[in-house]
Amino acid sequence: MSESFTTKQVAEHKDVDTGLYIIIDGSVYALKDFVDEHPGGAKILKRVGGKDASKQFWKYHNEAVLKKYGPKFKVGTVKEEAKL
């Protein structure tokens, strides 16, 4: 079952101790258990923790990477937030 998160909730998971969530194209991924295995190093994941990392992700990855690993790490989606 997929959960809905606000961007504020994702931001609360900005480091390994809190779960290290990132957003890619509206989907939320928990990467705490992947940080040390990331081929590009842990530093970049820690830098984008709790944020929308779409731009950075697509700069270095193609769609095949997301299709292969996305389902394993996806924990939900970002829900629409009311704008005042």
Rank of each mutant, 00 (worst) to 15 (best):
K32Y: 01
V16I: 13
G19I: 12
L31S: 07
F34Y: 09
Y29N: 03
V65P: 09
E63A: 09
L45W: 09
E81H: 11
T18P: 00
K46M: 14
M1D: 08
K72A: 07
V28M: 02
A42E: 06
M1K: 07
K72P: 06
D15W: 03
I44N: 02
I24G: 01
K8C: 02
K74N: 09
L31D: 01
V75K: 01
F73T: 05
G26C: 09
V75Q: 01
D25R: 07
K83Q: 08
K32L: 03
R47L: 12
V10Y: 00
A11M: 06
K83F: 14
K51L: 10
D25Y: 09
Q9S: 11
T7H: 01
H61I: 15
Y21T: 09
A11Y: 05
L66E: 04
D52C: 12
A53H: 07
S4K: 08
F57S: 13
E63M: 07
I44K: 04
L31N: 04
V75N: 00
Y69H: 11
Q56Y: 05
H13R: 11
I22D: 04
T77I: 10
G26R: 00
D33G: 13
T7Y: 00
A42W: 11
K32F: 01
T18A: 12
V48N: 03
L45R: 04
K46E: 13
Y60T: 14
E81C: 06
T7V: 11
K74P: 02
G19N: 07
Y29A: 04
Q56F: 10
P39A: 05
K43E: 15
H61T: 08
F57Q: 14
K51Y: 05
E3H: 02
H13I: 05
F73R: 07
E63W: 07
E12P: 01
T6F: 04
L20W: 03
K32T: 11
G41I: 13
P71S: 14
T77V: 14
K67S: 06
E80N: 13
A30E: 02
Y29K: 03
F57V: 08
S27M: 06
S4R: 04
I24W: 00
P39F: 08
V35F: 02
Q9Y: 04
H61C: 12
V28G: 00
I44T: 10
P71R: 14
Y69C: 06
P71A: 15
Y60S: 08
V10E: 00
M1S: 07
F5E: 03
K46N: 15
E63N: 11
G41F: 11
G70C: 08
A11S: 15
A30K: 10
A64H: 04
F5D: 00
F57N: 08
F73D: 01
V35D: 09
S4Q: 13
V16P: 00
Y29S: 04
A30G: 10
V78L: 02
E80L: 13
G26S: 12
A11Q: 14
V28I: 12
Y69P: 02
T18E: 00
D25M: 03
K67C: 04
A42Y: 07
K8A: 15
K59D: 15
K79L: 02
D15G: 12
F5K: 00
L66Q: 05
F5M: 03
K83Y: 06
G41K: 14
K68T: 13
K83G: 11
D25T: 13
I22V: 15
F73V: 13
Y21I: 08
